[in-house]
Simulated assay, not measured.
Amino acid sequence: MKMNLASPMSKSHLFLGIETSTTNCSVGLFRDDTLVDKLEEDNGYSHSEKLGVFVKDLLENNKVEVVDLSAIGVGVGPGSYTGLRIGVSFVKGLGFAHNIPIIKFTSLELLLNQFRSLDYPLSSGGIIIPMLDARRDEVYCQVYNSDFEPLEAIKAEILSEESFSKYRVGNSKIICLGPGAIKSKELIKSNNMDVIENLMPSIVGMESTILSKYRNEAFENLAYFEPYYLKEFFAGKAKRSLLSPE
Rank of each mutant, 00 (worst) to 15 (best):
S7H: 14
M1C: 03
L51E: 04
L59R: 06
V64D: 06
N99L: 05
E232D: 14
S117A: 15
E197L: 05
D137Y: 12
A218L: 05
P227H: 04
L211D: 07
R116C: 12
A235N: 12
G79V: 06
L132M: 13
K237P: 00
S107K: 04
L177A: 06
N191L: 08
E232N: 14
I103G: 08
F225A: 01
G236L: 15
V91I: 07
L211W: 11
I210W: 09
L69F: 09
T22W: 13
F225R: 08
D133M: 02
D57E: 15
A235K: 14
G44K: 01
Y167S: 00
E19T: 03
E19M: 10
G170K: 07
L112Q: 11
V204R: 11
S244M: 09
N216Q: 14
G44I: 06
K213E: 12
S202C: 14
Y144C: 04
I174V: 09
S7V: 03
M200D: 08
E138D: 14
N43Q: 14
I203F: 01
N43R: 13
M200Y: 13
K183N: 00
L211E: 06
Y140Q: 12
N216T: 10
N171I: 05
I182A: 12
A238I: 14
M206V: 12
Y224L: 11
P227S: 08
A181Y: 05
A156W: 08
L39W: 00
V53K: 06
F234I: 14
D194P: 07
E152Y: 01
G236Y: 10
S48M: 08
L112M: 15
N145S: 00
L39M: 09
L151P: 02
V55E: 04
K56A: 12
F96P: 00
